[in-house]
């Protein structure tokens, strides 16, 4: 390992530490804002370090640099403007939208990667399945909170049967992909997962959406960790695993606070979100 690689690895480790400390500080109101800023600083360092790694390696084509910069500047600006302008009451649906694009990006990494190892194939299939599912799931959740999709539970006829069928397709084509390695098989997994994300979120009522968004957030974390396995990138594995587990615990805390079991929330059919409940007396 060269001195350069060692330094890069240590810097990434410091970034991972800042994510853990940042998340921990967000447990208490007094330190929460500082925690978020520590985590943001770690993220900025991780991005800069990766830029240096790309420049040092010298293997990136000009076309890739242009595509990367255009995409990142446009996306970063869009995120910044949306986050600054959003009304306080509309923040949860915006977080859900950010979660959706995060899951989408994780899925695209596996779709764009051409590493032909079994490890990359297995984790890549998982990445695409989870990432694509949270992409559409979070978009539907965001739409429900924003009122673009009715907040009441929308029960799709034979929804569960279709979901089970989609899951079977995703598993089948994932296994086929691990054996074969053709990228069109992975695309089929992505399409099945995209459809499943919509089907699973539609029957859930608007009142339960915050818990669902937290669950999808945990899923995105896991998808990002899988992308880390595909790319052999430690910061993605650490941060993704961290968010996956922390998001799962947070989902449980939120469900407990609402006195609703998570299984009942996922099953759907409860809580209209837009109806006004009138209690007698």
């Amino acid at each position: 390992m060269s001195a350069f690689d060692t330094i890069v690895h240590l810097v990434y480790l410091a970034c991972a530490v800042s994510f853990v400390i940042g998340l921990h500080l967000m447990n208490a109101p007094a330190t929460a804002r500082r925690g978020n800023r520590i985590s943001a600083a770690g993220m900025a360092v991780a991005i800069l370090t990766t830029a240096v790694v790309l420049g040092h390696g010298g293997v990136v084509t000009t076309g890739a640099v242009v595509a990367l910069v255009i995409g990142a500047v446009a996306g970063g600006t869009a995120g910044l403007v949306a986050a600054r302008r959003v009304k306080m009451t509309a923040m949860p649906q915006l977080v859900s939208l950010f979660n959706a694009v995060g899951g989408g990006a994780a899925a695209l990494i596996a779709l764009g990667d051409h590493t032909a190892t079994t490890q990359a194939a297995v984790t890549g299939a998982l990445d695409v399945a989870i990432g694509a599912l949270t992409f559409t799931g979070s978009l539907v959740a965001s739409g429900k909170l924003a009122g673009r999709i009715p907040g009441r539970p929308l029960v799709v006829p034979f929804g569960r049967l279709i979901s089970a069928g989609l899951a079977a397709i995703a598993v089948l084509f994932s296994v086929w992909f691990v054996g074969d390695g053709s990228n069109w098989l992975l695309a089929v997994v992505a399409i099945a997962a995209l459809a499943a994300g919509v089907l699973l979120t539609l029957p859930i009522g608007g009142a339960d959406m915050p818990v669902v968004i937290s669950l999808l957030n945990a899923c995105t974390g896991t998808a990002v960790a899988m992308a880390g396995f595909v790319l052999e990138s430690t910061p993605l594995i650490i941060a993704g695993g961290l968010v996956g587990a922390a998001g799962a615990i947070l989902t449980k805390l939120m469900a407990d606070a609402m006195n609703r079991p998570i299984s009942a929330i996922i099953a759907g059919g409860y809580g209209t979100g837009d109806a006004v409940t009138v209690s007698a007396g």
């Binding site: 994510f19 940042g22 998340l23 967000m26 447990n27 208490a28 109101p29 929460a32 925690g35 978020n36 985590s39 943001a40 993220m43 991780a46 991005i47 990766t50 830029a51 790694v53 790309l54 293997v59 990136v60 084509t61 890739a64 640099v65 595509a67 990367l68 990142a72 949860p92 977080v95 950010f98 979660n99 995060g102 990006a105 994780a106 990494i109 764009g112 990667d113 051409h114 915050p210 968004i213 937290s214 957030n217 995105t220 974390g221 990002v224 992308a227 790319l231 990138s233 910061p235 993605l236 941060a239 993704g240 961290l242 968010v243 922390a246 998001g247 947070l250 805390l253 939120m254 606070a257």
Partner: peptide
Amino acid sequence: ATLHTPLMSGANAIHGVVIVGVMLLAATVT
């Protein structure tokens, strides 16, 4: 409970580390 949503949002930002993965992907795409 008041910190549930900010904490979820903070965790959401952390999985934005996926940008590092996208940058690494840039070295392989053609």
